[in-house]
């Protein structure tokens, strides 16, 4: 009895599967590669959908997306092996892209268009992944308690001036890891450890919540300063919720390290998978993402910075002013990730 019920369970599953499998086939065209490209993406912004539509309109190539968490998408690609349907992997953090490369799941790709579109500090030196938007890791401070000069550098947050006045996101978060990885690259591990320990000593509470939650905590007076990605602040400014706008009005934004090496930046980027079935389509889409048309569409929609300085950012970003960004090899964010994690754990910044 037990066996027959199980078999029936499978029969049900099989019919559901058949349906899904049918939906996945189709769209083959005559020119060698099928007329679509499959993207595993850890970005899940509505704006990306508009972008896919625009790409299809421009090229006739359909973009099929599977959104998800970067680490899990990585495992799925690994498990799928050479049968993977993924042609392009997209992530909102260079560290995750590096992990894929490190796991041997990306292939190196270089085209003149990509080289021309993407500045060299915003791509993998070997071409395994290419940035297409840029985000800055900024300091947010409460206007009625802190003067902007007091938070001009990341170092400032580790000084006794801010004892009990810093809130931070968990170090499980990849942006946080990349921030420390960049410091390891620039100043060495010991410096990074001292800095992390200093910030840790200044915590107003244990890490919890999202970037936005950190900004809100600062605005509410729970702490005086935090570090977040710049666009979370911009979003609060533009929010439909008056409470969010109120939060934004209480805090100020600083691009740190303007005279000492530049603000830490990260990318959203993509890389062609090792077993891509539609390599040409994937490259075509990557070139499109870094091209002018897409840059004018995608960067403003998520208030990220365009990948090239020559493209005008969204008005809200322009209002924040120009800033100096750090110049380190992008793959440093990945290479130092493991060490960054160890340091965070050593100093008790969970």
């Amino acid at each position: 009895m037990s066996f027959s019920i199980s078999r029936r369970g499978f029969a049900l599953g099989a019919s559901a599967l058949a349906l899904a499998a049918c939906n996945q086939n189709g769209g083959a065209s005559g020119d060698g590669e099928e007329n679509f490209v499959n993207v595993y993406t850890a970005r899940h912004y509505d704006a990306d959908r508009q972008l896919y539509a625009a790409f299809e309109e421009a090229t006739g190539v359909q973009v099929r997306a599977l959104t998800g968490n970067a680490e899990q998408l990585l495992e799925r690609i690994r498990a799928e092996g050479d049968a993977t349907e993924a042609d392009l992997f997209v992530s909102a953090d260079a560290g995750n892209l590096w992990r894929l490369k490190d796991a041997g799941l990306l292939q190196n790709v270089t085209t003149p268009t990509l080289e021309q579109n993407v500045p060299s500090n915003l791509r993998d030196p070997e071409g395994a992944y290419w940035g297409f938007t840029k985000r800055a890791r900024v300091i947010m401070y409460r206007k009625d308690a802190v003067r902007p000069e007091e938070v001009a550098t990341y170092d400032a947050l580790a000084t006794p001036r801010f004892r009990g006045q810093i809130v931070m996101r968990s170090s499980t978060n990849t942006y946080q890891l990349s921030t420390l990885a960049s410091r390891i690259e620039r100043h060495g591990a010991d410096n990074a450890r001292q800095w992390a320990a200093g910030v840790r000593a200044n915590f107003a509470r244990d890490p919890e919540g999202s970037d936005t939650d950190q900004i809100k905590a600062v605005a509410a007076g729970e702490a005086q300063a935090t570090v977040v990605n710049h666009y979370y602040f911009v979003r609060l400014m533009k929010s439909e919720d008056p409470a969010d706008r109120d939060v934004a009005s209480k805090v100020g934004l600083v691009f740190p390290d303007q005279t000492t090496g530049g603000t830490h930046v990260n990318i959203s980027g993509g890389g062609v998978t090792l077993h891509a079935k539609r390599r040409g389509r994937a490259i075509q889409f990557l070139e499109y993402l870094t091209g002018d048309a897409a840059q004018n569409l995608i960067a403003p929609a998520n208030t990220e910075f365009p990948i090239r300085p020559s493209i005008t950012p969204a008005p809200e970003l322009a209002a924040l002013g120009a800033f100096v960004e750090e110049s380190i090899p992008l793959d440093a964010l990945g290479r130092h990730q493991a060490e960054a994690t160890r340091i965070f754990e050593e100093v008790g910044w969970r």
Partner: peptide, 16 residues
């Protein structure tokens, strides 16, 4: 897959 019992993990198998 490594044992050769099934092909790669395509969409249908992922759904399974």
């Amino acid at each position: 897959r490594e044992a050769g019992w099934i092909g790669g993990l395509g969409t249908a198998l992922a759904l399974a």
